[in-house]
Write a protein that binds this DNA or RNA. Structure first.
Length: 518
RNA sequence: GGCCUAUUCGUCUAUCGGCUAGGACGACAGAUUUUCAUUCUGUAAAGAGCAGUUCGACUCUGCUAUAGGCUACCA
């Protein structure tokens, strides 16, 4: 019988959601949707010391912005529209979905492991362990060393329980049996075999904050939440054998999820995992949204604030580690859902190429209608103190959008349509404003003043013959004219500009230029 | 140090034993253009190394090298 596909994205609220985490979430989502399964979101906040306020909200809002929908667990409420009314809701019958709210559950299962002899109490303090590691090179708490340590195996169970009753701090460790080859079947990499001798007796339950470690919480939750596939980053591959052993110790091997370990996102230059620092250093965001970290006071830039479209980020990320046969590069979310497959995920890490990311945004920007872009561009215009008719804005965007990667960049391309030049670019002047230019412009002004039909064709039909008759040279006249209107040697076709400006404004700009440029 | 994973143009990748190794980003060059761009066309650019299996290997195996990950009472 086919098992219902249920996958989870389980981030820790330790800061902004890293772009690599976003990709993990995306792959989980694509897999879930493709199989008609469920996408869960669980918060893994078992490290109380690393908790960052606002991180949970951030994660959920980022996924919401990107269109990665959560079926079960924690998610942004979509009932109420508008940013301010968004709130976190919990959906589903397998909750709670925050690990910090599941202490009793973990307690119960740790007890089970203790009873069955798969785990034991240990009293070695962090200081003692640290000393041990200094004393013995490559010290590991395992089958070879555990009988030399302070734990319920060496002390005896009764003595251990007495210590606990007396209030002594303790941890619970998993008892890894030696000399066993543990096989992890990975959907991307195939079988990975690790001998249990290299595994240590991992702490399952911490003394510090009365919470389990990742390993225990993760296995218990995935089991209870009926997760069918664990799709996570490659950094988890080394501990996957431990997880397999845990499933066995609990007697859950029959419903153990399938594993898929995703390759890592690497730094564009140099070596190593892509990190928050790299974004700052290389000047691009590594987070979906801007994040204000209340804990350390830092602000990290985000893709959304940088002008990215969510669909471009999705497309870019999807192809960083996954590729179908063939040459298609532009995918909608629906196409990704249809075509995605774990066995076409690449095995090696992908260096993060920010330039390609920009290209994706460029592509999506070109696909948007001028009206859509005008709506998105209006706030930028307002920031520059410009109020303009949306129809005109859409028109000038249509003239210039193929030059930009991001909506805010449009301002540099269209500003002169709304604000008359007050200065004239020196380089353009030096190259295009000749000795005869004032004379040319004066004559052109007279010509245009009499012009009634202001369409591009009509103007062209009047101006070109005039230039030719006088043998002035098209380039010389037109470029000077352009400088008058734009303030520099740039911009779209000249008649497109005069069309938007209209007769009155065009003439005014020429007159101003004539008085200002000497 | 130990263990694990990986290795095709600078980057992301296609290729699932027959390759003149394809595409995209970026780079460069040319064409178009009354400006700046855009666009178009083109060029350079790759199988880490060494063995082995095979009629034949980028594709399979081994070793080496290199890269990355993990090695916490962090996830």
């Amino acid at each position: 019988m086919e098992r219902r596909v249920r996958v989870r994205f389980a981030p820790s609220p330790t800061g902004a959601l890293h772009i690599g985490g976003v990709r993990t979430a995306l792959y989980n989502y694509l897999f879930a949707r493709q199989h008609g399964g469920d996408m869960l979101l669980r918060i893994e906040d078992t490290d109380s010391t690393r908790f960052v306020p606002g991180a949970e909200e951030y994660i959920l809002e980022a996924l919401d912005w990107l269109g990665i929908e959560i079926d079960e667990g924690l998610r942004m409420s979509r009932k109420s529209k508008g940013e301010s009314q968004k709130q976190i809701e919990s959906v589903g019958s397998h909750g709670p979905y925050r690990q910090s709210e599941r202490r009793e559950i973990y307690h119960r299962y740790v007890e089970q492991l203790l009873d069955s002899g798969h785990a034991y109490y240990a009293f070695d303090t962090p200081e003692e362990l640290e000393a041990k590691r200094k004393e013995i090179p490559n010290f590991q708490y395992d089958a070879r060393t555990r009988m030399t340590m302070k734990n319920s195996l060496t002390l005896g169970l009764d003595a251990a329980k007495q210590r606990i009753a007396d209030g002594e701090k303790y941890v619970v460790r998993f008892k890894v049996e030696p000399d066993e080859d543990v096989t992890v079947h990975d959907l991307i990499r195939g079988d990975v075999v690790i001998n249990s001798n290299i595994l240590d007796d991992k702490v399952l339950y911490k003394s510090a904050d009365d919470l389990p470690t990742y390993h225990l919480a993760n296995i218990v939750d995935d089991h209870l939440m009926e997760i069918s596939h664990v799709i996570r980053g490659e950094e988890w591959l080394p501990s996957a054998p431990l997880h397999v052993l845990l499933y066995r110790a609990f007697g859950w091997q029959d419903t153990m999820p399938e594993f898929a370990h995703l390759p890592l996102l690497l730094k564009p230059d140099g070596n190593g995992k892509l990190s928050k620092r790299d974004g700052d250093r290389l000047g691009f965001p590594v987070f979906p949204l801007e994040f204000h970290n209340e804990k350390d006071g830092t602000v990290s830039s985000g893709y959304r604030e940088s002008g990215y479209f969510p669909e471009a980020v999705i497309n870019f990320l999807a192809l960083l580690g996954w590729h179908n046969t063939g040459d298609q590069e532009l995918y909608t979310m629906d196409e990704l859902i249809q075509q995605f497959s774990l066995d076409r995920v690449s095995k090696s890490g992908a260096k993060f190429d920010y330039e390609k990311g920009k290209w994706f945004n460029h592509q999506y920007l070109q696909m948007k209608s001028n009206e859509e872009l005008a709506d998105l561009f209006m706030p930028t215009l307002q920031q520059h103190g410009v109020t303009a008719d949306k129809g005109i804005v859409a028109q000038v965007i249509g003239l210039t959008k193929d030059r930009v990667n991001f909506v805010p960049e449009l301002w540099e391309q269209v500003n002169f349509f709304f604000v008359a030049p007050t200065e004239y670019d020196e380089k353009s002047l030096a190259k295009r404003w000749k000795e005869d230019s004032p004379k040319h412009m004066t004559e052109l002004l007279e010509l245009l003043e009499q012009q009634e039909d202001w369409t591009a064709d009509a103007l062209d039909n009047v101006v070109m013959p005039w230039i030719n008759a006088k043998e002035y040279g098209v380039g010389i006249v037109m470029n000077a004219f352009r400088i008058c209107l734009v303030g520099a040697a740039r911009g779209p076709h000249i008649w497109a500009i005069t069309d938007v400006l209209g007769k009155e404004e065009t003439l005014r700009r020429v007159r101003t230029a004539l008085s200002k440029i000497s």
